[in-house]
Design a protein around this nucleic acid. Structure first.
Length: 802
RNA sequence: GCGGAUAUGGCGGAAUUGGCAGACGCGUUAGAUUCAGGUUCUAAUGGUCGCAAGGCUGUGCAGGUUCAAGUCCUGUUAUCCGCACCA
C-alpha cells in the first residue's frame, strides 16, 4: 500500500504557491475570447476574520469559475474589500488606531484566510473601497448624479440611530431599530444629501424581466418598491382650500365619511386660527413626533387622532361635508399625506371610525360592514353610489376616474413605497462628499480635476452629539474656496454611506487600475454584465437595489452599455451553528474556518460546505459529517494503489462514467452541488467495487472533482504524470446515448403493490414486458381476473385485478 | 395583517413528466484489523409483526383525483424569513 493518506497541509500550500507564481487564474484582456464573469459579494473585512458562511458562497462560484476555465472561457473571478464602515471606525475610536491601519490589518488577515481555501480569485484585480484611487470614482459618480439633478440636499425628518449617532437609510432600519447595532431609531430633522432612486422605481421593476434572478429576489424587490395604482382626488374644504388625497379605491368615493391628515400636514398650521381646539392638536402633533418608529409600530392596533374642529372637507361627488381628523396612521411621506376614509371598505378606517363613532356607509355590497370592513375587490357590487350603482368594483374604478378627470377633480396616479435614498452619514470612515457650500452660489460640486477629495487626518473619530460629522472640526479642511466664485466656502462634512463603494465595484474589477475613468469602455463592454452573481438575501433591498440603480444611471449617461448589471443572481442559505441557531459569539456556536482547514484541509472544508445541504437553504454545521468528505478524498487518493492503464472506460463502468459526467455537469449549473458530490461518491463506490480504476476513468473522476477539491486533484494529476496541470485540462464530455443501461430493472405491481422485479432490455416491447411480468407475478395473479395492464417502458408493469 | 418559503428516518438531506420513497453522507449496531485509542475494512440500519419466507405500515394533518401521489387538487396546522398603519 503505497498511497494511504496524504499530507494535505503540505500539498495545499504547495499548489497555492504554484498557482500564485504562475498566475494561472488571471483573467486576460484578450477581448476576442468568450468571457465569463463570476462574482461574489466582496466582504467587509471585520476584525473577527472570515466566517464559515463566507466560503459557502465563494466556493460555489469558485466551482463555477473553475469549470468555466476548463470549458475554455476567459474567466473573471475577482475579490476585493468593502472596507469603509462603522465597525472599523468604532474599533479605531476604542483603540486609538487610525481606521486605515485597522483596515490594512484586517484585509491582510482576510486575504490569507481566503488564500488558504484555494479560491481561484484573480488577485491582480484586488480592489479596496477605501483606497483613494478607488473612491475617486465613487465621488465622480456622485458628481454625475448631482449634475443630472439626482443628488439633492434636503431638510427632512430622518431616521437617527441614537447609538451610532448617525442617520440611516430606510433600508437600514429593521423593525424600528438600527440594522447594525439594534439601538433605538428616532426621527430627527436634518439637512441631508438624497439620491433620487425613486426616479428609477418603474424601471427597477420593469427590467427585472430582463434578468435571471431567483424568484424570491424579484418578489422582494417588487414588494419593496411597492407600486400601487389609484387616483388623486381633490376634495373641497370649508376654508376654500383644495385638499388632495391619494386612494387606490376611488370606486368607494361615495363611502367617504371623514378625512385624515398626517400630523405633519402643512394645512394644520395654515388653518391654525380657524381651529377651535388648536392646543389639543399641537399636543397630538408633539406626541406623534416624539414616538420612535418602534413605538409607532407597536401601537398599530390602537388608533389615535384628533378632530380638526372648525374645518370640514367637502366630497366632490356629492358635496357632502365631512369631518377632518389628524392621526399618525397617515404618513406624510406617502401619497399626499392626506386620505379620504372609507370605513366600510378599509380595515384601518373601520377601526378608527368605530373608536370615534363615525358613520360607516356601505358602498360595495358583499360583506357585513357593521362587523368588519369589506375589502374584497373581486366580488362586490356598487351600492349607495349614485352613478356607480350596480357596477363591479373594477368598472366603478374606471368610471369614476373618467368622471374625476372630466370634472377636474382628480386623475389616475401611480405611487411607490420606495423612498429616495438618504445618502449622508455623520461619520468619519466613509467617502467624503465632494461638495462645497458657498453663501453666494449655494451647493457647488468640486471640479472633477480635484478628485479624489481625500479624507483628512483628524484627531478624533468620535461621532458628535450635535449630529455633525467628526470632519466638521477640521477647520483647515472644511474652510475652502468656492469653485464657482472663488469666495470663502465650506466643505460638506458628512460622508457617504457604506453602500456607496459597493454600488459599482463590479465595474472596477474590469479595469482596476485605470486612472482616466472608472474603467475603460472596452473593458466594461467586454466584461459586463456580470454573468453570475451570488450573494446573501439580506442585500436584496439594499446593495442589490442600490447597485442596479447606479448601473442604470451610468447606462443612461453612456458609461456602461447594458441596462442591467447582473444577468443572473442566486443566493446561498446561511450556515447555522451545530444547535441549529444562527452562529454568534454570544451563543457560543461559532465555527472557525481556520481550525477546520488546519484539521481537515481546504479541500475537505470546501467539499463539506458544498455537501452540507441544499445550497439555497440554511443548514446547520455538523462536525462529524465533515469526516465523510475527508474519507471520500482519502479514498480518491488511494485509488492510485489500484491504478491500471487504459485509454477508454471499461464496459462495466462506461454508462456510470457518462451518467456521472452528465449529473455533475448539469448539477453545477443548477447550484445542486450536494447531489453532484453524491454522484461522484456513488461513482467511487462503484469503482472500488470493481477492484481497480483505469487511467481513463481516473482522469475523468479527477477532472470532475477538480473544481470542488482543487489541491488533491492537482497533486494526483502530477504524481501520475497525467500531463500539465489539471486546471489547464478540458472539462469532460458525455455521450447521452451512453448514459442509459442496456438492461433496466422493471417493477412488477399488482394493484399498485410491488410483487417482484425483473431485469429486461430497455428496448423490450410492451407486449413482451407484460408477458414476462405476468410470468414473474404468476403467484400473485393466481385466481384473479386481470382488468387492466399498465406498462411504463423501462419502469414498471402494473396489473389491476379483481 | 400582507408577502415569501419550508415540513421526508436518530441527523444533514435525495427522489425528471405522478411510476421502486429514503440516493449520498453522518450516526448507530455487529464483526475484522489494532496492546489500546484513533484509523481502515466488511455487514446491517424507516417503523412494526414474524424463528423464517414474508406481511402490514410509512413523506406535518384531514379529505379528494388516479391503475399508481412525497409529487396533482381542496381544506388545515406548525415553523422560519421578509415587510408592516403605504390609503
Amino acid at each position: 500500500m503505497k498511497y494511504e493518506k496524504y499530507d494535505f497541509a503540505q500539498v495545499e500550500k504547495k499548489w497555492q504557491d504554484i498557482w500564485d507564481a504562475k498566475n494561472v487564474f488571471a483573467a486576460t484582456n484578450d477581448y476576442t475570447k468568450p468571457k465569463y464573469y463570476a462574482l461574489v459579494e466582496f466582504p467587509y473585512p471585520s476584525g473577527q476574520g472570515l466566517h464559515v458562511g463566507h466560503p459557502r458562497s465563494y466556493t460555489a462560484l469558485d466551482i463555477v469559475a473553475r469549470k468555466r476555465r476548463l470549458e475554455g472561457y476567459n474567466v473573471l473571478y475577482p475579490m476585493g474589500w468593502d472596507a469603509f464602515g462603522l465597525p472599523t471606525e468604532n474599533f479605531a475610536i476604542k483603540n486609538h488606531i487610525h481606521p486605515e491601519i485597522v483596515t490594512r490589518q484586517n484585509v491582510a488577515h482576510f486575504k490569507s484566510q481566503l488564500k488558504s481555501l484555494g479560491l481561484s480569485f484573480d488577485w491582480n484585480r484586488e480592489i479596496n473601497t477605501t483606497d483613494f484611487n478607488y473612491y475617486k470614482w465613487t465621488q465622480w459618480i456622485f458628481l454625475q448624479l448631482f449634475k443630472k439633478g439626482l443628488a439633492y440636499k434636503k431638510e427632512m425628518s430622518v431616521n437617527w440611530c441614537t447609538s451610532c449617532k448617525c442617520v440611516l437609510a430606510n433600508e437600514e432600519v429593521v423593525g424600528g431599530v438600527c440594522e447594525r447595532c439594534g439601538s433605538e431609531v428616532v426621527h430627527k430633522v436634518k439637512s441631508q444629501w438624497m439620491l433620487k432612486i425613486t426616479a428609477y422605481a418603474q424601471r427597477l421593476i420593469d427590467d427585472l424581466d430582463l434578468v435571471d434572478y431567483i424568484d424570491r429576489v424579484k418578489v422582494s424587490q417588487i414588494n419593496w418598491i411597492g407600486r400601487s395604482t389609484g387616483a388623486e382626488v381633490e376634495f373641497g374644504t370649508t376654508t376654500g382650500d383644495a385638499l388632495t388625497v391619494y386612494t387606490t379605491r376611488p370606486d368607494t368615493l361615495f363611502g367617504a365619511t371623514y378625512m385624515v391628515l398626517s400630523p405633519e400636514h402643512p394645512y394644520i398650521e395654515q388653518w391654525a386660527d380657524r381651529l377651535s381646539n388648536m392646543e389639543e392638536i399641537r399636543a397630538y402633533q408633539a406626541e406623534a413626533a416624539r414616538k420612535s418608529d418602534f413605538e409607532r409600530t407597536e401601537l398599530v392596533k390602537d388608533k389615535s387622532g384628533v378632530e380638526l374642529k372648525g374645518v370640514k372637507g367637502i366630497n366632490p361627488v356629492n358635496g357632502k361635508e365631512i369631518p377632518i381628523y389628524i392621526s399618525d396612521y397617515v404618513l406624510m411621506t406617502y401619497g399626499t399625506g392626506a386620505i379620504m376614509a372609507v370605513p366600510a371598505h378599509d380595515t384601518r378606517d373601520w377601526d378608527f371610525a368605530k373608536k370615534f363613532g363615525l358613520p360607516i356607509i356601505e358602498v360595495v355590497k358583499g360583506g357585513d360592514v357593521e362587523k368588519e370592513a369589506f375589502t374584497d375587490c373581486e366580488t362586490g357590487t356598487m351600492v349607495n353610489s349614485g352613478m356607480l350603482d350596480g357596477l363591479s368594483v373594477e368598472e366603478a374604478k374606471e368610471k369614476i376616474k373618467t368622471w374625476l378627470e372630466e370634472n377636474g377633480k382628480g386623475q389616475s396616479k401611480v405611487n411607490f413605497k420606495l423612498r429616495d435614498w438618504v445618502f449622508s452619514r455623520q461619520r468619519y470612515w466613509g467617502e467624503p462628499i465632494p461638495m462645497v457650500f458657498c453663501e453666494k452660489c449655494g451647493w457647488v460640486p468640486l471640479p472633477e480635476s480635484e478628485l479624489p477629495l481625500r479624507l483628512p487626518e483628524v484627531k478624533s473619530y468620535e461621532p458628535t452629539d450635535s449630529g455633525e460629522s467628526p470632519l466638521a472640526h477640521m477647520d483647515e479642511w472644511v474652510n475652502t474656496t468656492c469653485p464657482h466664485c472663488g469666495g470663502p466656502a465650506r466643505r460638506e462634512t458628512d460622508t457617504m454611506p457604506q453602500w456607496a463603494g459597493s454600488s459599482w465595484y463590479f465595474m472596477r474589477y474590469c479595469d482596476p487600475t485605470n486612472s482616466e475613468a472608472l474603467a475603460s469602455k472596452e473593458a466594461l463592454d467586454y466584461w459586463l454584465p456580470v454573468d453570475w452573481y451570488n450573494g446573501g438575501m439580506e442585500h436584496t433591498t439594499l446593495h442589490l437595489l442600490y447597485s442596479r440603480f447606479w448601473h442604470k444611471f451610468l447606462y443612461d449617461i453612456g458609461v456602461v452599455s447594458t441596462p442591467e448589471p447582473y444577468a443572473k443572481r442566486t443566493s446561498h442559505g446561511m450556515i447555522l451553528g451545530e444547535n441549529g441557531e444562527k452562529m454568534s459569539k454570544s451563543r457560543g456556536n461559532v465555527v472557525n474556518p481556520d481550525e477546520i482547514v488546519r484539521e481537515y484541509g481546504a479541500d475537505t472544508m470546501r467539499l463539506y460546505e458544498m455537501f452540507i445541504g441544499d445550497f439555497e437553504k440554511a443548514a446547520p454545521w455538523n462536525s462529524s459529517s465533515i469526516k465523510g468528505c475527508k474519507r471520500f478524498l482519502d479514498r480518491v487518493w488511494a485509488l492510485q494503489n489500484v491504478l491500471e492503464g487504459g485509454k477508454a472506460y471499461r464496459p462495466s463502468l462506461e454508462s456510470s462514467m457518462h451518467k456521472t459526467i452528465k449529473k455533475v455537469t448539469e448539477d453545477i449549473e443548477q447550484l445542486k452541488f450536494n447531489t453532484a458530490i453524491a454522484a461522484m461518491m456513488a461513482l467511487l463506490n462503484e469503482i472500488e467495487a470493481a477492484g481497480s480504476v483505469n487511467e481513463a476513468e481516473y482522469r475523468t473522476l479527477l477532472i470532475l472533482l477538480n473544481p470542488f477539491a482543487p489541491h488533491v486533484t492537482e497533486e494526483i494529476w502530477e504524481a501520475q504524470s497525467f500531463g500539465g496541470m489539471i486546471n489547464q485540462q478540458k472539462w469532460v464530455s458525455f455521450d447521452p446515448a451512453k448514459c442509459v443501461d442496456a438492461e433496466a430493472e422493471i417493477v412488477v405491481q399488482v394493484n399498485g403493490k410491488i410483487k417482484c422485479r425483473l431485469s429486461l432490455p430497455v428496448d423490450c416491447p410492451k407486449e413482451d414486458a407484460i408477458a414476462r411480468a405476468k410470468e414473474a407475478a404468476a403467484q400473485a395473479l393466481e385466481g384473479k381476473t386481470v382488468v387492466k395492464e399498465i406498462c411504463v417502458p423501462g419502469k414498471l408493469v402494473n396489473f389491476v385485478v379483481k
